[in-house]
Simulated assay, not measured.
Amino acid sequence: MFLYEAEGKSAKNRMHIDIRVAGPGPWDMAERARLIRQKVPELVAAGATVVSEEWYGDVLGHVVMHDPEGNEFCVA
């Protein structure tokens, strides 16, 4: 869930949030990608939008998203 702020955004983000869905490594990369793909629709339903998918070769690295106010964060 995203909390909405009554005041408009006045400056560029000072902090970048990464949502780590796979916990600490080392990871099974296929399972990590599955967890990322599972979390993204939940965040979209809560009001976020997908900006891009970042790949490390043929492995999903992370998904860049914006919250409803346009702040960038990543699901990794």
Results as ranks from 00 to 15, higher is better:
residue 52 S to I: 09
residue 27 W to M: 05
residue 9 K to Y: 09
residue 51 V to E: 04
residue 58 D to Q: 14
residue 46 A to P: 01
residue 65 M to A: 06
residue 58 D to R: 13
residue 69 E to R: 08
residue 16 H to R: 05
residue 56 Y to G: 15
residue 71 N to F: 07
residue 54 E to C: 13
residue 54 E to L: 12
residue 30 A to W: 15
residue 60 L to M: 02
residue 67 D to Q: 02
residue 76 A to H: 08
residue 7 E to Q: 15
residue 32 R to E: 03
residue 22 A to I: 01
residue 10 S to G: 11
residue 30 A to Y: 06
residue 59 V to A: 13
residue 74 C to F: 05
residue 10 S to T: 13
residue 37 R to I: 03
residue 53 E to W: 05
residue 59 V to T: 14
residue 56 Y to E: 15
residue 37 R to Q: 06
residue 13 N to C: 09
residue 9 K to I: 12
residue 18 D to G: 04
residue 56 Y to M: 12
residue 63 V to M: 02
residue 27 W to P: 02
residue 70 G to W: 05
residue 25 G to H: 06
residue 45 A to S: 10
residue 47 G to M: 06
residue 58 D to Y: 10
residue 65 M to L: 12
residue 61 G to V: 02
residue 4 Y to G: 12
residue 5 E to C: 09
residue 16 H to F: 11
residue 56 Y to K: 14
residue 29 M to D: 12
residue 54 E to A: 11
residue 4 Y to A: 08
residue 69 E to H: 15
residue 34 R to V: 04
residue 44 V to P: 03
residue 73 F to G: 00
residue 48 A to E: 00
residue 50 V to Q: 00
residue 52 S to D: 14
residue 2 F to V: 05
residue 2 F to I: 08
residue 9 K to M: 14
residue 30 A to E: 14
residue 20 R to A: 09
residue 33 A to S: 04
residue 50 V to L: 04
residue 46 A to I: 05
residue 8 G to Q: 11
residue 7 E to L: 13
residue 64 V to A: 03
residue 4 Y to C: 13
residue 30 A to H: 09
residue 76 A to E: 14
residue 32 R to Y: 04
residue 6 A to I: 15
residue 42 E to T: 08
residue 24 P to S: 13
residue 9 K to T: 15
residue 23 G to C: 13
residue 23 G to E: 12
residue 20 R to L: 14
residue 71 N to T: 06
residue 5 E to Q: 12
residue 28 D to R: 12
residue 45 A to L: 10
residue 62 H to V: 01
residue 19 I to Q: 02
residue 36 I to H: 01
residue 50 V to R: 00
residue 55 W to A: 05
residue 15 M to N: 09
residue 47 G to Q: 07
residue 59 V to D: 10
residue 60 L to G: 00
residue 60 L to E: 00
residue 29 M to I: 11
residue 41 P to L: 07
residue 36 I to M: 03
residue 4 Y to V: 09
residue 65 M to Q: 05
residue 25 G to A: 09
residue 51 V to K: 03
residue 58 D to M: 13
residue 9 K to L: 13
residue 58 D to V: 13
residue 25 G to Y: 04
residue 59 V to S: 14
residue 74 C to Q: 02
residue 38 Q to V: 08
residue 69 E to C: 11
residue 51 V to A: 05
residue 47 G to T: 04
residue 52 S to K: 15
residue 23 G to F: 13
residue 76 A to M: 14
residue 6 A to Q: 15
residue 38 Q to D: 13
residue 47 G to H: 07
residue 33 A to V: 01
residue 73 F to S: 02
residue 12 K to Y: 10
residue 4 Y to D: 10
residue 20 R to Y: 06
residue 24 P to M: 11
residue 6 A to W: 11
residue 55 W to Q: 10
residue 34 R to I: 04
residue 15 M to R: 09
residue 18 D to V: 07
residue 67 D to R: 01
residue 39 K to L: 06
residue 39 K to V: 05
residue 70 G to R: 03
residue 19 I to K: 02
residue 54 E to F: 12
residue 48 A to T: 01
residue 28 D to T: 07
residue 76 A to Q: 10
residue 73 F to T: 02
residue 56 Y to S: 07
residue 26 P to V: 07
residue 39 K to T: 05
residue 72 E to L: 11
residue 4 Y to K: 12
residue 3 L to V: 12
residue 70 G to D: 10
residue 55 W to G: 04
residue 28 D to L: 08
